[in-house]
Design a binder for these strands. Structure first.
Lengths: 357, 357
DNA sequence: CTGAAAGCGCTTACAG
DNA sequence: CTGAAAGCGCTTACAG
C-alpha cells in the first residue's frame, strides 16, 4: 500500500479503494463494484467474499468518485430564508429538520443546510447547489405568493418538494411546476379554531398574524374571515406582526385598548401568545375569564405558562419526514403526486374558556 | 453539444464542462483549469477570455469531479446529538448554525448537518462522513467528560474544532488531541453571576442545572460552588434537570418548599426560568421581592415575561462564526491554536433585585 | 506561457 | 458469471 503524503506534510492513512479489494480478492475492479452494489453478474459466494474483505479493510466508497460516475450527490438541500433570530426562536425549523433526518440518514443521504441571510441568496444557493450537483433535490418551505423559487426550480429542473402549500389553494399543484407538494391544512385548522371559539360564545375574535405573503398565513387569514362570516361574527380584526414577542405584545395592547376589545385572540406563534399573557394581566384582563388566548404551533412553551396556553398542534417532525420521503421518491423517479396533509389539532389548555356574557 | 438522456427519460440540459470551454476558447482543458483557478501559467488576457466564456456558458464546476481530484469536499459537518425536542427548543443551535453559515457560505463551503437520534449514531456519522470524504472537517459541540468523540476524531485525524471547552479546565487542549478549541467562559460567567447576586445581599442561592456530564455545565457547577464558598454562602443547592420546562418547574417547587427556601435561583436555560415564574407566583413568592431569578443564555423569551428575566447573555452566532473560521483555517493547514473566548455578560432586567433582609 | 497526459475512485456497458 | 476498458469532470505535475 503506497503511503501518500497528507496535505499538511505528515503521513496519513492511505485510502482503501476498490482496487485494494480487487487485488486482495483476485478480481477486477468492475467485479468488486458489482459485488458491493448488489448488482447481478456476481455469484453469491464471490459477493460474500468481497463484502467480507471490504469490511475487513474498512472500506467506504469515496462519495466524490461515486457521485462523479453515477451523477448522484446522495444529498438533499434545505434553504431557510428567514432571519436567523426567527429561525432560532421557532421550534418549527429544527423539528422539521429532525423529521427530514430520520428519513434520509437511513439511506445514506446527507442534508445540506443553508441559512440565507439575504432574500436573493436563497435562489443563488439553489442555482449553485444544482450547477455543482451538490444535491439531488431540495425541500422548499415558507412559500409565498408569486414565489420566485418556483419558476427557478422549474426551469432548472431541480427535483423538489414544496412544503406548506395550503389545501385551500386547489390550483397550487400546477403553480409549483408539476413538482411534489406536501400540503398543510392551515385553512381547515383555522376554521376549527374559530368554530371552537364561536361555540364557547365568543363574538369578537381577533387574529395576531404573521406576514400574509406566505401562502400558509394567507390561507389562515382567508379561513379566519370566511369562518367568522359564516358564524355571523361582525367584528373581525387582524393585526400583522413580525412574529416577535414584542410585536405580539404591541398587537395585544392595541386590541385590548379598543372600545370594544375582543374576547378571544388567535396568534400565529407561541411567543406572541406568551407575550400577550403579560399584557392581558397588566391591563386587568383575566385569562380565560375576560379573554381567551389561542397559540398556533403548539410547543412545550405553551405548557409552562400560567394559565397554560391552548394551542393548535401538529406533528412537525412527521411533516419533515413526509417531505423527505416524497423527495427521495421523486428523485428515484417515482410519479409526481401530492402527499397527504399533515393534520393540525386543537389542544385545549387553560387559556381558552367560555366568553363572558 | 450532445443531448444526454435524463434519468427519468425526458431530455435534460447537458452539463457545461471545461471541455466545452476549452473547445470554445481553442485551448486545452488544463489551460482552462489554470485560468479558472487563478493558477499561474496563463496570461492575463487568456484568463479573462476563459472567465468570460465560462460565464457566458453558465459554467459551474462539478463538485464531484473537483473533490475527486483535489481531495477536498468543500464541506464541513456538524452533528447534533441531543433529543430533537431539546434542539428545537434551545435557540442556541440554530443561532450557532447561522453563525457558521455566515462564514462558510462566503467561500463556497457547504454545511452538512446531522441530527443524531441515538448516542452512538454521532460517532458513526463522523466515521462515515470522513471515510466517504463528505466533509473536510467537523465542528463538535456539547463536549462531555471522557467524550468518546475526542479519541475517535484524533485517531481518524479529522480536522476538528471543539466548541465549549471551558477555560476553567486548563488541561483541555491536550485532551482534545491537539485540535483547535473555541473556549467558552462558563466558569467566569457563573462567578460573575454569583458575585452579582451576593452583592444584592443574597445568601441562599440555588442552581437549577443541566446534566453535569457536559463540560460547560460542570464548569458552571464548579464555579457555582467555589464562588459561593468564596462569598461565605453556606446553603448551596444544585438541582439537576433535563432542561425541560416541566423539570424547571418541579425543581423550583422543590426548592421553594424547603424550610429555608433560596432567595435567588440561577437556571441553565430560559425555558426553566420562565416555568419558575409561574411556580413562584403560585406559591406566593414575589419576583423579585422575595425571589430573584436568573436565566442563562438570554433569549427574546426572557424579554417578554412579567417581570422580564435577567439573564446571562452571549453572542452565540459569533461563537459559531469563530468556530467556522477556526476550522477553515485549520483545514487550510493553519497552525493549531486555541481561539478567543466568547464573553458572556449579565443582562439585568426585572427578575433580580435586592434580597429581602 | 501552453498542451498532452495521467490520475482521482468509482460505475457501467460491452465482450468473452 | 467475470474481465478489460471507457468514462464521469476535474486537477496537476511534466514536457515543450
Amino acid at each position: 500500500m503506497v503511503d501518500r503524503l497528507a496535505p499538511r506534510g505528515g503521513p496519513t492513512i492511505a485510502r482503501i479503494t476498490i482496487t485494494d479489494i480487487a487485488r486482495e480478492a483476485g478480481l477486477s475492479k468492475g467485479a468488486v463494484s458489482y459485488a458491493l452494489n448488489g448488482q447481478p453478474g456476481v455469484s453469491e459466494a464471490t459477493r460474500r467474499r468481497v463484502r467480507e474483505i471490504a469490511d475487513r479493510l474498512g472500506w467506504h466508497p469515496s462519495q466524490a468518485a461515486r457521485s462523479l460516475s453515477s451523477s448522484r450527490a446522495e444529498a438533499i438541500g434545505l434553504v431557510l430564508g428567514r432571519p436567523p433570530r426567527l429561525l432560532a426562536l421557532e421550534p418549527f425549523y429544527m423539528e422539521f429538520i429532525s423529521g427530514i433526518e430520520s428519513v434520509i440518514s437511513r439511506c445514506g443521504t446527507a442534508l445540506l443546510l443553508h441559512v440565507a441571510e439575504k432574500a436573493d441568496g436563497e435562489c443563488e444557493t439553489y442555482r449553485r447547489w444544482w450547477a455543482q450537483r451538490r444535491v439531488d433535490g431540495v425541500i422548499v418551505v415558507d412559500l409565498t405568493a408569486g414565489d420566485e423559487r418556483v419558476p427557478l426550480i422549474r426551469d432548472l429542473q431541480i427535483p423538489a418538494v414544496f412544503v406548506g402549500v395550503p389545501t385551500s389553494h386547489p390550483d397550487e399543484p400546477q403553480r409549483v411546476g408539476g413538482n411534489v407538494c406536501v400540503r398543510t391544512d392551515d385553512g381547515v385548522a383555522m376554521r376549527d379554531a374559530i368554530l371552537y371559539l364561536a361555540r364557547l360564545g365568543h363574538r369578537r375574535i381577533a387574529r395576531v398574524a404573521g406576514a400574509p405573503r406566505y401562502l400558509h398565513i394567507a390561507a389562515r387569514d382567508e379561513a379566519f374571515v370566511t369562518t367568522a362570516a359564516e358564524c355571523g361574527l361582525g367584528d373581525v380584526r387582524v393585526v400583522q406582526t413580525d412574529y416577535s414577542g414584542e410585536a405580539g405584545a404591541r398587537a395585544t395592547r392595541q386590541l385590548l385598548s379598543a372600545p370594544e376589545p375582543p374576547t378571544a385572540i388567535v396568534f400565529d406563534n407561541d411567543i406572541m401568545a406568551v407575550a400577550s399573557l403579560g399584557v392581558a394581566a397588566e391591563l386587568g384582563f383575566d385569562v380565560p375569564g375576560d379573554l381567551s388566548l389561542l397559540a398556533w404551533d403548539d410547543s412545550p412553551l405553551c405548557e409552562i405558562t400560567h394559565p397554560a396556553l391552548s394551542a393548535m398542534h401538529r406533528d412537525v417532525a412527521a411533516l419533515g419526514a413526509v417531505a423527505a420521503t416524497s423527495l427521495l421518491h421523486h428523485i428515484a423517479g417515482g410519479s409526481e403526486e401530492v402527499s397527504a396533509v399533515a393534520a393540525t389539532s386543537l389542544i385545549v389548555r387553560g387559556s381558552t374558556g367560555r366568553a363572558r356574557m
